[in-house]
């Protein structure tokens, strides 16, 4: 029989892998580059939850694992549920913003007009956020699970959910910039999703993650400049059709 920590790790990684497989199937042919159409709310929610599970579960594993291993009264799956709910809320906010922009359908965001500048600015913003004190505080939280578990402990099932959701919010605080970068590069692109997930994993889990966050800041700003000035030179960047956004 597997021990509990091992079982938790295997389950999380299997769920993430399944998420990647499903996302790869669902998103085939969906990538339209920056400002990709997000489709109807139902479909979007399904793919968003799948994608965030795929992208985030491996880097959330140390926190979940510490919770399962260290807390006597651990309700691991309730904790994970709370975590995913926080990310789903973020996804809904992003969808709402997208719809707002899409509805007004401003001509100037078209790729053949100001689109590259908008995408480039979003990437640069994501880069600058990497250097903010808030990002640093959230990243420290994510990198120190034990401290959060003894400091932020709440009892019972509702406590587990709240702790998971709170951790999720702090994780959103840590990663919204990188997620914004993903929206700017093409949210339905498996390639960019994998790049962003790898970046998140590296800064959260690997040694020297805090320093890496600053390296990523430079990379994002550079990528932003490239997208704004020479978008055709980025091999994996799908060039949107003019006026695609907003249908």
């Amino acid at each position: 029989m597997l021990t509990r920590p091992l079982r938790v790790t295997v389950t999380l990684l299997t769920a993430a892998l399944a998420g990647w497989v499903v996302a790869a199937q669902q998103m085939r042919g969906m990538d339209a580059g920056p400002g990709t159409n997000l489709g109807g709310l139902g479909w979007y929610l399904g793919i968003w939850v799948t994608m965030t599970a795929a992208m985030m579960l491996p880097s959330a594993a140390p926190m979940v694992l510490t919770y399962a291993r260290v807390a006597r009264d651990a309700r691991t799956w309730v904790f994970v549920l709370g975590y995913l709910v926080a990310w789903t809320a973020f996804g809904l906010v992003a969808y709402g913003l997208y719809r707002l922009v899409a509805r007004s359908s401003p001509g100037w965001v078209a790729w053949n007009r100001q689109g590259p500048y908008v995408a480039g600015a979003a990437l640069a913003l994501a880069g600058l956020y990497q250097l903010s004190p808030l990002k640093k505080a959230c990243l420290r939280h994510c990198r120190g699970p034990f401290r959060y578990l003894v400091h932020g402990w709440r009892d019972g099932r509702t406590g587990a959910f709240r702790m998971g959701a709170e951790h999720g919010l702090l994780c959103v605080g840590c990663c919204w910039g990188l997620m914004l970068a993903l929206f700017a590069l093409g949210v339905m692109s498996l390639f960019w999703a994998a790049v962003v997930a790898a970046a998140i994993f590296a800064e959260k889990v690997l040694p020297r993650g805090l320093a890496l966050a600053r390296v990523l800041a430079v990379a994002l700003v550079a990528l932003g400049l490239l997208v704004a000035l020479a978008p055709g030179h980025i091999p994996e960047l799908t060039q949107p059709e003019p006026m695609r956004m907003g249908r």
């Binding site: 291993r69 260290v70 807390a71 006597r72 009264d73 651990a74 401290r147 578990l149 003894v150 400091h151 402990w153």
Partner: peptide, 17 residues
């Protein structure tokens, strides 16, 4: 603070062990 948090978690029995 970090030491107090750890001691509280251990001696209340909140930490598994």
């Amino acid at each position: 603070e970090a030491q107090r948090e750890a001691l509280e978690a251990i001696f209340t029995g909140r930490l598994a062990g």
